[in-house]
Structures are given as C-alpha cells and as structure tokens.
Simulated scan of single mutants.
Amino acid sequence: MLVIALDTSTPAVTAGLVALDEGEPQVLAERVTINPRAHGELLMPQLVDVMGEAGRGFAEVDAIVAGTGPGPFTGLRVGLATAAALGQACDVPVHPVCSLDAIAAAAGVTGPLLVATDARRKETYWAVYDGDSRLDGPHVAKPADVPTEGYPVAAGELAEAVGLPAVQPQHPTPAGLVAAAALDADPAPLVPLYLRRPDADEPGKRKSVLTR
C-alpha cells in the first residue's frame, strides 16, 4: 500500500511517500522544509520531488494522509486543500490525522508523553499520551500553564518550553502521520483543528464621512 503523507500544521512543510504493508511504515522519500511562510509555495513542489525520488507515479497511490493540526489558519488550509484536491484527482481516500498524534506515533515512547507545538502568540498546542494513545487534548495554552506532572518527557518543538526533557520528533513526520492514521476504516471528514479564531476580524460597520 502506497500512502502520500502531508502536513502543514507547524513551521515544517512536510511531504512524503510511505509504503505500508504488514510491518512498520517504510518511508520511500520525504521532504521537510522549515519555513512557516512558504507552505503554499513549497508543498506541491516537494511532493513532486518525493514522487520522482521514489520512482512512483500518482496513479500508484492508494491513499492520502493529511495532518489536520492543530495549527495556524493559513498553513492548515494549504495542506488540507492540497490533500483534498489530490484525493479527488487520484480517486483515493484522504484520511485526516491529528498532527500531535503523528508526533506521538513517531516518538516511540512507551508510557506517559506530552506533545507540545508552537501555537504562536506565546502559546502552545498540547496533548498528553500513553505511548501513542491520546489521553487528553488537544488544547491551547501558555507553556507555563500546561500541566506536566506525571509526564517525564515531551515531543514537539515546544517540548523544552513547557519544562520537560525533549525527545524527537519536533514536527509531524510522514511515518508518524501514516502510523497514526486509521487506514483500515472509512476516512473521517477532513476538518481542520484551529482551536481558536483566526487573527483577522470581520470589518465593522463603516463610519459615515458625511457631516451634518
């Protein structure tokens, strides 16, 4: 089974092709670029490079996995819109995956684990796990307000910011995305996890410039 894995929920623009048989996910090729302002420019070119390096065509793909966040409004839209368009073009299912779950799946920790990624505004998205099974979250909070008692390590780019020893990975990986996906079930709706309103506000009522 060949699976395209995409994630744009963090500053990392991630694209990969993963082979999934009876064993662990095998990454055939991947591209990861840290650039929080270039998701739209980088994602598809990276995926084309991935397919070329792996020597596979889009017609050979069996499924697509996309990280749904939590993450910034603009970045998430790029990844999910790309995944939805590819799924329609290739006529394959698109499976959503919480991006924090993908980090937990790739961390390889047996036991308590906290995952923390950058939510901007001096805040973090966080969730807690037993191995790769999510127990609570995702939530958004200031790093100092994240409950860390009982969790010896953390993964994600803000692991140290919440006061815990860090383990890899810092961002979702193609292997982690595929490992966390429920590929043997019908795909759930491709819904982004924003957790809060976008920064932009709707304009208010215009003030009259007429004088009486």
Rank of each mutant, 00 (worst) to 15 (best):
G75H: 11
V128H: 05
T148C: 06
A175Y: 15
A85L: 12
E123K: 13
E53G: 05
G163I: 03
A119L: 06
Q168R: 15
P174E: 03
R120Q: 14
V153P: 00
G57Q: 13
T68Y: 08
A59G: 07
E160Q: 14
W126F: 06
V97F: 07
A89K: 11
Y151P: 05
A81K: 02
T68H: 14
E157I: 07
G57F: 10
E53R: 11
D91C: 12
Y125G: 10
A102W: 00
V94L: 11
A104Y: 02
P112C: 11
D101S: 13
P143I: 08
P174W: 02
A161W: 02
G131R: 02
A166R: 07
T117F: 09
V109P: 09
G52M: 10
V92L: 02
A54Q: 06
R120I: 10
P96E: 05
F73I: 06
A59D: 15
D118P: 11
T68C: 15
V115E: 12
C90D: 07
T148E: 03
V97K: 09
V162A: 05
C98T: 10
V109G: 01
V61N: 10
V146K: 08
V153M: 00
A102T: 07
A175F: 13
T110W: 10
V146A: 03
V115L: 04
P165W: 01
L158Q: 15
A161T: 09
R56W: 07
E60W: 14
A59W: 06
A107P: 02
V140W: 09
Q168S: 15
P70S: 04
G111Y: 12
C98H: 10
V140N: 04
L80Y: 01
G71A: 01
T173A: 07
V146T: 00
T74D: 13
R56E: 14
L76S: 00
V78D: 02
S99H: 09
P72M: 10
A159I: 07
A116D: 03
P174C: 03
G57V: 09
V140I: 13
E157G: 12
P165N: 07
V140S: 01
T148K: 09
G57Y: 12
G156K: 06
A116Y: 14
Q168Y: 12
S133Y: 15
D130W: 00
G150S: 00
G131Q: 04
L135I: 14
V128M: 07
G67E: 05
G137K: 15
E160V: 10
D91R: 15
C98K: 02
E157H: 11
D101V: 09
V153E: 00
G55Q: 03
A119F: 01
R77C: 11
V65E: 07
W126C: 00
V61A: 11
V153W: 03
L80P: 07
S99F: 02
D118S: 04
E157N: 06
A161I: 05
G108K: 12
A84C: 13
C90K: 05
E123Q: 12
I103C: 08
S133Q: 15
